[in-house]
């Protein structure tokens, strides 16, 4: 185990394709037997229901949203529906509201994910190293994640809202309602998000920590490495795939943030923290403007796609590298 793991790091920089390519192609080149074909057919049939369901519940709505986004389509004026090409996108990208909300979303995502990563790592280390009561520590740490987001958001709102008699403004002696001011609602939203999802981050990182063997640490200790050095030179590099996966999940989730912001802003009333998801929700469901709202949703979808692509690229390199090292 220790040999495999330690080999993974130095090999990372070397050309990996040369080693993996032949191994990958082999199964494809096999001549298929009668039985193999039958099994393959059965396999396809077995996945077919799942594939059909997936197409019906994901591909169809996505394609339909793209179609709607190219229309002038408003539920209130069904007779005015017509194809307008990209004009909805032009109208959105030319509006300051979209860019403000996109900025809110990116800032909220960036700030919360970074804080969550640091706190999540600390929490994971605590959970990993806990000598006694490990089960209790892990369970306690996970409680916030088990609470429904809307409920958690309401709890934060009721605690911080001056207008609704929350205890926080009273305890801090604030004259102004924190949820009324831009700074206040941002701090509350960040706190609520971090509190809610740090356990998830910690859980994913804990899985990564389990990959780092104690022998490596002991060997480094013998060589005179300090705890800090061991953390940065052994734990972090070996955990890199786990960290990337955790970041990927959290960033995607955080970018689509809706519940916390919607509830804290009093159903979208305080727009100083409005995110793109809230904007598209309001355009679709309050204004009933299907064309514009769908275009907004597609833009959010594209943003999420870009984030996923960037991470998967980073992740792909990394897993291939460590995977080859192991062989």
């Amino acid at each position: 185990m220790s040999v495999q793991a330690s080999a993974g790091v130095p090999v990372a920089g070397r050309g990996t394709d040369g080693e993996t390519e032949p191994a990958r192609k082999q199964p494809g080149k096999k001549v298929m037997t009668e039985r193999g074909r039958a099994e393959r057919k059965l396999g396809l049939m077995l996945v077919a229901p799942a594939a059909i369901v997936m197409l019906a519940v994901t591909a169809y709505p996505i394609l339909y949203a793209v179609y709607l986004s190219l229309q002038r389509s408003d539920l209130r004026f069904p007779d005015d529906t017509e194809f307008v090409g990209l004009s909805n996108y032009v109208s959105i990208l030319g509006s300051s509201r979209w860019w403000t909300d996109l900025w809110h979303t990116v800032a909220l995502t960036g700030i919360t994910v970074v804080i969550e990563l640091v706190l999540g790592m600390l929490l994971a280390l605590v959970m990993h190293r806990a000598l006694f009561g490990r089960g209790l520590v892990r369970t306690t740490a996970l409680i916030p994640y088990g609470i429904v987001t809307v409920v958690a958001a309401f709890a934060w709102r009721l605690a911080f809202s001056g207008a609704e008699g929350g205890f926080v403004p009273v305890a801090l002696g604030l004259d102004d309602d924190p949820l009324n001011s831009t700074t206040g609602i941002w701090i509350t939203a960040i706190l609520a998000e971090v509190w809610k999802t740090t356990p998830f981050m910690a859980l994913l990182l804990l899985a990564g920590l389990a990959l780092v063997s104690d022998e490596l640490h002991e060997a480094a200790k013998v060589d005179g490495a300090t705890g800090w050095q061991r953390f940065w030179k052994i734990t972090i590099p070996l955990m890199k795939p786990a960290i990337l996966v955790a970041l990927l999940f959290r960033t995607l989730d955080a970018f689509r943030i809706f519940d916390t912001v919607f509830i804290l802003s009093n159903s979208g009333v305080n727009r100083s923290v409005e995110t793109v998801s809230v904007l598209s929700y309001n355009t679709l469901l309050t204004r009933l403007n299907l064309g514009l709202g769908s275009a907004l949703s597609v833009l959010v979808f594209i943003c999420v796609g870009i984030i996923a692509a960037v991470f998967i690229r980073l992740l792909g390199k990394d897993t291939i590298a460590s995977g080859t090292g192991g062989k």
Partner: peptide, 14 residues
């Protein structure tokens, strides 16, 4: 009211 921008009718009443 310091909460003016957040208040709906029931918060005024309170």
């Amino acid at each position: 009211d310091p909460s003016l921008a957040q208040q709906k009718e029931d918060q005024n009443r309170l």
